[in-house]
């Protein structure tokens, strides 16, 4: 990653134009050409620095379900349970954390009732309890990482 990659990441975290030539517009503020911006974004996606380029939705406003689910697993069972959990397409991301509650994953589903169905299925397949910790309120932050 060079200085231009960093400038692109910092600029595009604040938003992207919704217009006929959005890459040309965004490129102009960075003082580069449309083609260079497109190539750079492509390689940042390829190398995994960026995981996504596009809209971020408010799942609840789409009528879908979203929740944080947590499991307390014996060390020896962790990898096997992780495999089962990650195989569900509803699991958006999954982190191991250093705590007795050691597996934390986000469930994103097409419907709100699907959350409890997926939790039941995971409990049945793993034999472990899944703690459901739905969001009750979100406090505004300006999410960005200085690259």
């Amino acid at each position: 990653m060079d200085a231009l990659d960093r400038a692109i990441i910092n600029a595009l975290q604040d938003g992207f134009p919704i217009s006929e030539r959005p890459f040309a517009e965004a490129a102009a503020t960075l003082d580069i050409s449309e083609g260079v911006l497109i190539d750079r974004i492509e390689s940042l996606l390829d190398t995994g620095v960026l995981s996504r380029f596009g809209p971020m939705y408010h799942a609840e406003r789409l009528g879908g379900g979203l929740s944080l689910a947590v499991m307390k697993l014996a060390k020896g069972d962790f990898d096997q349970v992780a495999e089962i959990v990650n195989a569900f397409p509803e699991v958006a991301h999954n982190y191991a954390r250093d705590h007795e509650f050691n597996m934390w994953f986000v469930l994103a589903t097409e419907t709100t009732q699907r959350i409890s169905e997926v939790i039941d299925q995971i409990e049945q397949e793993t034999g472990y309890r899944v703690y459901n910790m739905p969001k009750l309120a979100e406090y505004f932050v300006g999410l960005r990482f200085e690259a």
Binding site: L12, Q13, D14, L50, R52, F53, G54, M56, H58, A147
Partner: peptide, 9 residues
């Protein structure tokens, strides 16, 4: 409905 449009780092 769309929170933000841009890159996810």
């Amino acid at each position: 409905v769309v929170k933000r449009f841009g890159v996810v780092v």
